[in-house]
Design a protein around this nucleic acid. Sequence first.
DNA 1: ACCGTGACTGACG
DNA 2: ACGTCAGCCACGG
Length: 107
Amino acid sequence: MQQQNDFFERVYEVVRQIPFGKVTTYGSIAKYLGAAKSARTVGYAMNAAHAKPDVPAHRVVNRIGLLTGKHHFGGINTMQQLLEAEGHVIVDDQIQQFDAVFWNPNA
DNA sequence: ACCGTGACTGACG
DNA sequence: ACGTCAGCCACGG
């Protein structure tokens, strides 16, 4: 029963495994943790991930590649800039070619 | 212990 | 195709 240990730590561990230039979704992480219905909780965990430099929270977006959590970064454009620095193309706060850069932790 | 909030998602009309 | 509603889990007050 380590699964009920720190839910947040579980999330961070998955996020750290996201390869450079790739992104994933809250739902995929939740599913990987065995709590597919806890996508919102994953997002909440990311809120606390701000204190974890090893957790690239900017690589985590919602299911359509929208930077819903960008406001939680230092600056409104911080998340977008970080993603662009990794080669992503963002238009209207949405990652273009999202399917091509999506990384599924379950796979 | 109860209620409200939230970086979500899927289903319905 | 688009907008709206409800469910879900964890945390703070």
